[in-house]
Amino acid sequence: MYALLSTIAAAMVASTAAFAQPADAGVFKRTTISPIMDGQNFPDPSLIRVDDGWHAFATNAKISGKTIHVQMAYSADFKTWTYRSGVDGMPTLPSWVDASSPRVWAPDVSQLPNGDFVMYYTAALKSNTALHCVSYATSKKVDGPYTDPTTTPWVCPTAQGGAIDPSGYVNADGTRWIVYKIDGNAIGHGGVCGNTVKPIVSTPIMLQQVSATDGHTKIGSPIQMITNGVADGPVTEAPSLSKLGSKYILFFSSNCFATTKYDVSYATATNIKGPYTKYGPLFITGTDGMTAPGGLDIAVNGNHAIWHAYVRNTTHPLTECISKHGREKGGGHKPAAADECDRNHGGGRAAFTAILSLSGNLVTASTLS
């Protein structure tokens, strides 16, 4: 049985440069949604379904004093989740990654035609530690260990700020694609998320076709899907591509993760290459008790979604905590001391799940109850 989430998505068509947002978006609240795994810190989560059930992956964390590059969780039914504490999906990193502070973010796993698995992920660049790059790693098993064969980053436009937040998609015609963000705010001119002081740097979401067989050989040049407009603030990031009904849906987050303006929004198109029209947002601060929801990932060719959010903490509000503890160098987009901020049950950002559906251009979300 499903319970309908409070939906903030705008029903009207918006322009490709901006989308309509309710005037009371910052205070909207009707119900409360509970995080999975009792609020275990599990940021930038992603999903894949295989024969034995659902597997989820998340950004690095320190567990019992040990750095885990890729966190993992499992569910047989998408309702009850088990956190695999201390288990690292990718214990060994390639030589181009900054070993002193690798910052492995936003892992996303897809299955290849031969049954193997490919993980797309973000890591800090050793030759310029303020920047991040996108790469891939492979494994015979869904839960790894994953190994990256590269000696240089796979996607790394350093002149534009590097790249983060990769996510894979397999089209109905068998073609395989990757979406990612060019991390322009990493070279921004200051302000919120390093990119509210003019001139504002573009943070486009890119679409790259890759080999359907190996998942990493690039085909052609990347295509820009959307970029940050006035309503998006300093960034568009955390893309995930799927198809609901007859339309391609590009989910993304906008505004700054370190403020309560962070959200989950989306854009739609009838062709995978676009043009994409922005709608939404789907989730904002106040939706079902969440604070700064973001990083939504939707299972390839499915409608099951996972995302993260901070849980309200009136003693140490999100913006106050970020201000106190600072941020990583280079204008990066993760807090330097997430656990110290105590923003949810377990510290960091909790994961949430739902089933998505599309009617016209309106996305709605329902939780398992």
Rank of each mutant, 00 (worst) to 15 (best):
A106F: 04
V179G: 04
N114T: 11
L93N: 04
S101P: 08
W54N: 02
M119I: 07
H69P: 09
A106L: 07
W81M: 00
T59D: 09
V170A: 11
T151Q: 05
T151E: 05
I63S: 03
I164W: 03
N171F: 05
T80L: 07
S95L: 08
D88H: 05
Q71A: 04
W96L: 02
I178D: 02
D77N: 12
T67Q: 13
A130H: 08
S139D: 05
Y169M: 00
P113V: 13
P145H: 04
A124P: 12
P94A: 01
R103T: 14
G161F: 11
G161K: 12
K79H: 10
R103A: 15
G89L: 10
V179C: 03
R176Y: 06
A106I: 11
S167Q: 10
D165Y: 00
M119C: 07
A130M: 03
V155G: 05
Q160P: 09
V134W: 11
Q111P: 13
K66F: 00
T158V: 15
T80P: 08
T92P: 14
D98R: 05
T59I: 10
P153K: 04
M72G: 14
V70E: 12
W54D: 02
N114F: 03
T92D: 15
G65S: 00
I68Y: 01
T175R: 13
N114M: 07
S85E: 15
G144P: 12
G89F: 06
A73R: 14
A99W: 01
T150H: 06
A123S: 15
V155K: 12
W154H: 11
P107D: 03
T129H: 09
S167R: 10
C133T: 06
S135K: 08
P157V: 07
T175G: 10
V179S: 02
H132C: 13
T138H: 01
V155T: 13
V97I: 13
P107H: 04
T82K: 15
A159E: 14
D148Y: 01
K141T: 15
M119V: 09
T129L: 03
P166W: 01
G86H: 04
N114A: 08
T150R: 05
I63E: 11
K140L: 09
A106K: 09
T175N: 08
A159T: 15
G168D: 11
Q160C: 11
Q160L: 15
T147C: 08
T138M: 01
P102E: 03
A137W: 03
W154V: 09
T151F: 00
Y136D: 05
I63K: 04
H69T: 06
S135H: 08
T152N: 09
P145Y: 03
V179K: 02
V142T: 12
P102R: 05
I68Q: 00
D98L: 06
P153E: 02
A124W: 09
S101Q: 15
R176E: 03
S139G: 10
S75M: 04
V134L: 13
T151W: 00
K79S: 10
Y169F: 07
A73D: 14
P91E: 03
W105R: 08
N128R: 12
V118T: 00
W105S: 08
L112C: 09
Q111R: 15
A58T: 13
H132Q: 15
H69D: 02
P94I: 00
V70N: 12
V70D: 11
S127C: 02
W54E: 02
V87R: 06
S100E: 13
I68G: 01
